[in-house]
């Protein structure tokens, strides 16, 4: 078990800054997920921690020891790759035992630890098979077995579920979570899928364009996003964002409508442009009146337990999620009420 610290990490390829002055501190036993869109630098950050990418500037420490100059083999980490990176010519048993064989662990010990790992991951019947004879989920488990058998101080996962189909992904997600609960080892997990991030993480690091956008628990990120980017990235369907202006004391103007705010946001002067966010399930359909936005219903998507409506309000496409049955047809005019306490205000 170990803590991990990224201090002022910068990564540059020629003139391109991939990561810029990143500071992240991860405590012992924590499950931290790096999430962000493609090209945000999350995988690079993980690979730098693994020792697979050189660090341009800054320092990385594992258990308070700076590891910048250490090769991967001396960092006491294990990694699960996106494409599994199983050795295709070795049986499942040999794949799992490979890290132990490389350091001359005695054979009986290897056998014991491989069979323990296989037992834990339900791989015992497949130990003699080759990776190509396994399904995607089984291969993923072998890759996890190869990491588990090491008993490393930090586990690294680089988008491990992105090659699996949706239902298997949900199942494997659960297995990874259980693994963390059982081992209690520090885990760092990279994904572009915010649902994976929300369900797995103790804390989430949102990265964008090589910079940390926000760090916090899943609920902190969901309830108090620090920026419109985080607001839209976390949560599904994504938060609606309107452009508006601060009207006077406690009102915001969106299109022609004045909407009351519960409290006046600090640091925003009257007349200042701002962005107003609201989650789709916080918007309600209502009657025309003061403080409601009008728009044209464009699309109704049935989801079984709820309905997702797409409504055009001025120049903004708004999604709302409602539990009520809807008798309206596309083209109808609808009125939206937005409770002031559910609004997220971001300076523009």
């Amino acid at each position: 078990m170990a803590s991990v610290e990224f201090k002022s990490i910068t990564k540059r390829y020629d003139a391109l800054d991939v990561l810029n002055d990143v500071d992240i501190s991860i405590s012992d036993g924590e499950f931290v997920v790096f999430v962000g869109p493609s090209g945000c630098g999350k995988s690079t950050l993980l690979r730098m921690l693994a020792g697979l990418e050189p660090i341009t500037a800054g320092s990385i420490s594992i258990s308070s020891e700076v590891v910048n100059a250490l090769p991967p083999r001396d960092r006491d980490i294990a990694m699960v790759f996106q494409n599994y990176a199983l050795y295709p010519h070795m049986s499942v048993g040999h794949n799992i035992g490979f890290p132990l064989r490389m350091v001359g662990t005695p054979k009986p010990e290897i056998e014991r630890r491989v069979s323990e790992a296989a037992e834990m991951l339900g791989l015992t019947p497949y130990l003699a098979r080759l990776p190509r004879e396994l399904s995607g989920g089984q291969r993923q488990r072998v890759a996890m077995g190869r990491a588990v058998v090491r008993e490393p101080s930090v586990f690294l996962f680089d988008e491990p579920l992105s090659n699996l189909d949706a239902s298997l992904r949900v199942r494997m997600r659960g297995e990874i979570k259980r693994l963390h609960q059982r081992l209690g080892t520090t885990m760092i997990y990279v994904t572009h899928d915010q649902i994976e991030a929300m369900t797995l993480a103790d804390r989430i690091v949102v990265l964008r364009g090589g910079k940390v956008e926000q760090i916090g628990t899943p609920l902190e990120l969901y309830n108090s996003p620090a920026s419109p980017f985080v607001a839209q990235f976390i949560g599904s369907p994504a938060m609606n964002i309107f452009e508006g202006t601060m009207d006077d004391e406690c009102f915001v103007r969106i299109t022609e409508t004045r909407i009351a705010l519960g409290t006046r946001p600090s640091g925003i002067s009257s007349g200042a442009p701002l962005l107003v966010g609201i989650r789709p399930h916080d918007v309600a359909l209502g009657d025309p009146g003061r403080g409601t936005l009008s728009g044209e219903l464009q699309l109704v998507e049935e989801m079984g337990n709820a309905r997702l409506l797409t409504i055009q309000v001025g120049g903004t496409s708004v999604q709302i999620e409602t539990q009520h049955q809807i008798a309206l047809l596309p083209g109808a005019t609808v009125h939206l009420t937005m409770p002031p306490e559910k609004l997220h205000i971001f300076p523009k």
């Binding site: 020792g51 697979l52 991967p72 083999r73 790759f81 990176a85 490979f98 490389m102």
Partner: peptide, 12 residues
């Protein structure tokens, strides 16, 4: 990726 995995798996 196989070489990367091997490096992490402590192969010289």
């Amino acid at each position: 990726e196989l070489y990367e995995a091997a490096r992490i798996d402590r192969a010289n």
